[in-house]
Design a protein around this nucleic acid. Sequence first.
DNA 1: CCTGAAATTGCTACGGT
DNA 2: ACCGTAGCAATTTCAGG
Lengths: 156, 156
Amino acid sequence: MKNATNIGYLLDAIDKKIIHMLMDNAKTSLAHIAKNVGISTTAVHQRIKKLEQAGVIENSISFLNARKIGYKVVAYIGVFLEQPNQYPDVVKALKEVNEVVEAHYTTGNYTVFLKVLCKDNDHLMEILNKLQKLKGVTRTETFISLEQSIGRQLKV
Amino acid sequence: MKNATNIGYLLDAIDKKIIHMLMDNAKTSLAHIAKNVGISTTAVHQRIKKLEQAGVIENSISFLNARKIGYKVVAYIGVFLEQPNQYPDVVKALKEVNEVVEAHYTTGNYTVFLKVLCKDNDHLMEILNKLQKLKGVTRTETFISLEQSIGRQLKV
DNA sequence: CCTGAAATTGCTACGGT
DNA sequence: ACCGTAGCAATTTCAGG
C-alpha cells in the first residue's frame, strides 16, 4: 500500500481482496469485507478511501443490461479515414451517436475502431449508413459478435 | 414499466431517469434520486428492485483504473482459427489469461476477437506469443489503441 | 403504483493503542 | 496502520390508500 515510482500504485494482499470484492459488487458492505479480510470495518474504510483518492478505484456504476431492453447485437467496426487528422471531427460526430459505446484511435489497418450496440441487423445497417456519410470516412469493416464468451475487468 | 412482448422490457420516463443516475454513480442515494424524479424514496426503491429482478439493471461494480496500476496499453486482437469448432477450447484457454478482458465469436475476418489490457508493448508481445502457441490458432492481427476517445454505456 | 413512518443496517468521524 | 464506539445517514420493511 505504498506509492510506487512509475510502475503504478502498489497493492498489498488486503487491498487486492478489497478491490476484488468491490469489482464484484460495488455495494458489498464494509462489515462483510472486514470479516472476509480479517481487519476492522474502520480499517477497511480507511483503505478504500486511500484507494479512491489515489484513483485506483473509480466511481462505481450500475450496469444496464442492453439485451434486456432489446439491444441484441454487439458489433465492432473498423473505420478508414481519408486523413488521420480528420479524427477529432469524426469523434465529435460519433459522440452524437448513442449506439457507439467505445471509440479508439488505433494502429493497424483502421484509423478508428468502434464498439456499437444495436437492436438488430437492420438497426446496425442504419448505423453503418450513418457512419459512411460522415465526412472523411472512406470505408468501414464490420465484425458482428455472435457470442461474447468473456467479459470482465482486469484481475489484479 | 410493463413487461414487453419480445422487444424487451419497457421503461417509462421515471425508470429512465433512475437508470441514468445509477449508471452515473451506483451509490446515488434513494433520497437524492427521489427528489430528482419527484416520487418517494420508497417508490424509487420498489422500482429499482423490479428493474434488478427483471435483469435490466445488473449488479453495480466498482472500476479498477488499470492505468493507475501500470496497465497502459489497450489492444484489440483478431484471432484466426484453423477450424471454428476449436472455439470452445480456445475460450477455455483464454479464460486463464487475465489480460484478456473480452472475447467474442464473430462474423467477418476473424473467428475470435479479443480485447486485452497490458502494461506495455513488451507485455503485449508476451501475450501475443502466448496466443500464438494455443492449439488451433493460425494467425493474429493486432490493433493498439493509441487513445480511447469514447467509453460509455448505452444511453437509453 | 404510490406514501409515511418505523426498524434495521451501514457509513463515517473521533479518540486512543 | 489499526481498533471500538457512538452518532448520523442510508436502506428496507410494513401497513395502508
